[in-house]
């Protein structure tokens, strides 16, 4: 092979230190790429997101299970609660017939907001890198 023509040869560069700027730029390849390609790094971030979401979900479920599951237990353990009245109205009916629904809505709303916050924070972290 003949040597390349003079014009195409790269200009000489005097090396004075390591190429720090260039090295960081390579690392700046979007993190979303790591996540999409399931590199080890991407996996770490995904695992973080998933466990944050799962912890949130389990917290909400535990609250719901304690609240709803506790009600029959209360009726069993403290039979006096079965016939309690509020004004002229029976308390168990008020709780299970009406009160449950707004509470369920508040819990659901809390979850939606919290999980959207988790995702926003995740996106911020990904965008920052």
């Amino acid at each position: 092979m003949s040597p390349a023509p003079e014009a195409a040869a790269p200009a000489r560069v005097r090396v004075t230190s390591t190429r720090r700027a260039a090295a960081t730029r390579r690392g700046l390849a979007p993190l979303s790429h790591d996540i999409g390609e399931q590199t080890d790094l991407g996996e770490v971030y995904m695992a973080g997101l998933m466990s944050a979401q799962l912890r949130l979900a389990l917290r909400v479920l535990a609250f719901g299970a304690a609240g709803l599951g506790g009600l029959p237990l209360l009726f069993v353990l403290v039979p006096a609660t079965r016939g309690m009245e509020l004004g002229r109205l029976p308390l168990p009916w008020l709780v299970l017939g009406i009160l449950v629904y707004p509470v369920a809505l508040v819990v659901a709303r809390y979850y939606v907001r919290a999980s959207e916050r988790v995702e926003r924070e995740f996106l911020d972290v990904v965008a920052r890198r």
């Binding site: 979900a57 909400v60 479920l61 719901g64 709803l68 168990p92 009916w93 299970l96 017939g97 449950v100 629904y101 369920a104 819990v107 659901a108 979850y111 939606v112 999980s115």
Partner: peptide
């Protein structure tokens, strides 16, 4: 009687569970 009130409650709570675990 009263114990059947759990049916409508369960129908509604099912959506909260669905939301929390699998909706997205």
């Amino acid at each position: 009687g009263f114990d059947m009130l759990w049916f409508p409650v369960g129908y509604t709570v099912g959506y909260v569970v669905l939301l929390v675990l699998v909706a997205a």
